[in-house]
């Protein structure tokens, strides 16, 4: 079955985690979807690397957080928050590439 991430996640957001890091949160509608996505390992380093066109070593962590039925991805900021040339000081609008994620889950 093909699933769109936006159909099964109630929150998809980005924010600074300190001035060096950007953290992306995906909070699923319920535990069931969280488990399905987690088991299928859909949110992988490879997927994030492709979506954001960043090298693997810029992906610092992908953490599953069961209490919130959430998956958290932390990446290195392209530049330190507020440095000359930064486009998003709070890092609050870097989540959009996640909105287009579609994947197949086993029936």
């Amino acid at each position: 079955m093909e699933v769109k991430l936006t159909d099964i996640a109630s929150v998809i957001r980005s924010k600074n985690a300190g001035p060096y890091e950007l953290t992306l949160d995906i909070i699923f509608n319920d535990r069931e979807w969280y488990d399905k996505v987690r088991r299928a390992q859909v949110i992988s380093r490879r997927l994030i690397s492709e979506l954001y066109r960043i090298p693997d070593h810029h992906i610092l962590d992908i953490i599953e957080f069961e209490p919130a039925a959430a998956i958290k991805i932390t990446v290195r900021r392209p530049m330190i928050s507020g440095d000359i040339g930064d486009s998003d000081v709070y890092g609050a609008q870097q989540h959009a590439p996640l909105l287009g994620i579609k994947f197949k889950l086993p029936e």
């Binding site: 924010k15 962590d61 957080f65 959430a70």
Partner: peptide
């Protein structure tokens, strides 16, 4: 629980 994720790299 979702707030526990907010603005941090590792929620645990």
């Amino acid at each position: 629980a979702a707030h526990t994720l907010y603005e941090k790299s590792n929620p645990y």
